[in-house]
């Protein structure tokens, strides 16, 4: 039983770590704000969830388990909300997404801010 718990916890931690790093790379490498926000928003919620679930497998008593559940619920509630508000605020302040067409790019760069 311990063995199963350990292995599944380790797996969750591994997946979570991978997601965190990939989110960081996405934040650094993607071309404009909205794609960066996509990378962070998706991987942050899922990666944090995976790491917290992985820690739950290792938690020695019920108090710690329940605190981890609280943190997980908070991240699940807060992460998507902040992403939503951030995108909305950026959109309202006329930050246009970077698009494929050449002439569009010229247009957005002049109308930004």
């Amino acid at each position: 039983m311990d063995m199963i718990l350990n292995i599944s916890g380790a797996l969750c931690l591994l997946v979570g770590s991978f997601l965190c790093i990939s989110g960081g790379v996405g934040l650094l490498r993607f071309p404009d704000f909205y794609t960066r926000m996509h990378a962070v928003g998706v991987t942050d919620t899922l990666g944090a969830g995976m790491i917290l679930i992985g820690l739950m497998f290792y938690s020695p008593d019920f108090l710690i388990f329940s605190k981890l559940v609280i943190i997980l619920l908070l991240t699940l509630l807060i992460g998507p909300t902040t992403s939503h508000v951030l995108a909305k605020a950026a959109m309202q302040n006329n930050l246009k997404p970077k698009l494929q067409q050449e002439d569009n790019i010229k247009e957005t760069s002049s109308s930004n801010y």
Binding site: G16, C20, G23, G24, L27, F33, R36, M37, V40, D44, G47, A48, I51, L52, L55, L68, I71, T75, G79, T82, L86, A89, A90, L95
Partner: peptide
């Protein structure tokens, strides 16, 4: 480059700090 990139970075940094402290 933009303000929102910075906010996004701070937000991500915050969630990562939460994870770091629990770990």
């Amino acid at each position: 480059p933009t303000l929102y990139d910075r906010i996004l970075a701070v937000n991500m940094f915050g969630t990562k700090t939460v994870l770091l402290i629990s770990l």
